[in-house]
Design a protein around this nucleic acid. Sequence first.
DNA 1: GTTATTTCTTGCGTGCCACGCAAAGTTGCT
DNA 2: AGCAACTTTGCGTGGCACGCAAGAAATAAC
Lengths: 196, 196
Amino acid sequence: MEPGLRERKKQATRRALALAALRLSVERGFDGVLVEDIAAEVGVSPRTFNNYFSSKAEAICALAVDRAQRAGAALRARPPGEPLRAAIEATMLAEFAGGAVPEHVPDRVWFAGLRMVLATPAMQGEYLRVRAAMQDALSSAIAERLGLPPTSLLPEVVGGAVAAACDAATHRWLHADPPVPLQPLVEEALRHLADY
Amino acid sequence: MEPGLRERKKQATRRALALAALRLSVERGFDGVLVEDIAAEVGVSPRTFNNYFSSKAEAICALAVDRAQRAGAALRARPPGEPLRAAIEATMLAEFAGGAVPEHVPDRVWFAGLRMVLATPAMQGEYLRVRAAMQDALSSAIAERLGLPPTSLLPEVVGGAVAAACDAATHRWLHADPPVPLQPLVEEALRHLADY
DNA sequence: GTTATTTCTTGCGTGCCACGCAAAGTTGCT
DNA sequence: AGCAACTTTGCGTGGCACGCAAGAAATAAC
């Protein structure tokens, strides 16, 4: 069952709303853009916006959530024999290679968007949900990989730890002056985790 | 400079508001209690509520944030020579000994409150802030302990990993049926972290 | 190809929330 | 007591999230 016209249109609208929300917030700040503006940008009614997202903040972070979930998929795709730590490191280094920018999003917008989100108190809660999404994606991939019973805490713990490492690297990356590449920071963060 | 009457009264009001917010939300659910109700319970105007907390959710989680910060203080208080991992494990096991309930909060309310928060989408973002507060508290204690330069990612990574472990243990604890004690779960979670 | 059905969009109305502002009330210092 | 600093309060505003029902569009059935 391939996606019909209906479904494709829905996804396109969703994506357009998320992108518009991000771009406008970068340009004018979180409080400088109303839900109304985002809807107008996409050519849709304000009421429809709330059919897709239950808050302005959710829309702004939606692309980041999608991306976080892809990290889980990438981990699942590693060869099954590979040891867990190696699989995780390979996945994360690949994933964060180019700043980890979703398709069709200009680098500059993504970077500025992350900074804006982290600097805006009203958005920090939503950012933490992105991090939680990455943790969940990793945890479930890890659980599947190791074939552990659902009573084991290992997947959650390791998923959370890896998410924390990526998060620390991302923070440093965003505030580095002069700019530094992201990948080595992720590498360092994962090393600290392994060394603990 | 000990706290004057003014400051003590403020803290008392803050605490009373947080506790009322938690208790009422447990009784009636998040949407069943208005800011107005919480303010009334404490005998203060609704406008004053927002002088203390910038949202209903923040008030409900305020006690948990306080407690998370105490974990950082507890880690600082460990003997300076002790190896990091041992210090962390001792701190966390002590901290989560009795379910880690703040003073003057009935056990039942704390437990039910955590469940309510985790089950309510509108509160999950705020719960994640509690977790972030614990991470920050631990990170800064670790950085101080090890005397690392602020360029090192280690404190953030380890703080985040430990917070993730505690969080995983807490989740399991809340959903365990029949109930199990929290401490062994924390122990298991920290072991997974050390084994990774 | 027309009709029936499901699904999505939209407008409207409602209730709540967060906060700016300025007036009134407290507390603390001398 | 008197003054300065701070807190509480009421009022008003703008915005947000969502329930509901009517209209429009896509899909399915005949």
